[in-house]
């Protein structure tokens, strides 16, 4: 019945050194997590490296997981995304910058409707929609596709400093909206 064990309990088991629990997490989550890494890196080999690194971190850090600070799947996803970003940074993030598939349309407007599937996602989407479209796109390109400030600026055809302050203001507005 392991598929019925909540992820958060599996993480607690991993903290006790239970390798089978880690494998259960992998079996249940690896498709979603690999998707997160691959969205950042757009390179299956590099994405596999990121998921590998992330699971090593999950094994080591499971004891740090705090259920009061968010759902387990988000915790796992954040570790994978950080691992992917580390790899992107180590590569100078050259991968995404000239990817023609990554235009402003990379995240189609309907895509953020995916957020409505969950209550907290719907709330975030409503707040994202209060932002100017290019700022919203900048935030999404950075979070989902791992673009740096400079790459977002290149995509949007705006000066780096402008984009930095847009994104910063956009984030702070999001926070106010979510509060």
């Amino acid at each position: 019945m392991e598929s019925e064990t909540p992820l958060s309990e599996l993480i607690l088991l991993v903290a006790d050194g239970d390798r089978r629990a880690l494998r259960s997490i992998y079996q249940r989550e690896s498709t979603r997590l690999f998707g997160i890494a691959n969205a950042v890196l757009r390179d299956r080999d590099a994405a596999a490296d990121a998921v590998h690194d992330a699971f090593v971190r999950i094994a080591a850090r499971a004891g740090q997981y705090d259920q009061t600070r968010g759902v387990a799947s988000a915790w796992l996803g954040a570790i994978v995304r950080y691992a992917a970003l580390d790899i992107a940074r180590a590569r100078g993030r050259e991968i995404p910058s000239d990817d023609p598939a990554l235009g402003d349309s990379a995240i189609a407007p309907e895509a953020i409707e995916l957020l409505d599937a969950k209550a907290e996602g719907a709330r975030l989407r409503a707040c994202l929609l209060t932002l100017e479209e290019r700022i919203r796109n900048g935030i999404l390109l950075a979070f989902v596709h791992g673009l740096s400030h400079a790459e977002v600026a290149a995509k949007l055809g705006e000066p780096l400093g402008t984009v930095k302050s847009w994104i910063r203001r956009g984030l702070l507005r999001l926070r106010e909206c979510l509060a």
Partner: peptide
């Protein structure tokens, strides 16, 4: 926690 829902925008893919 606030931005975690954006994780769902990545397309799932088998490793």
């Amino acid at each position: 926690m606030a931005l975690a829902p954006l994780q769902d925008l990545a397309t799932p893919e088998a490793p």
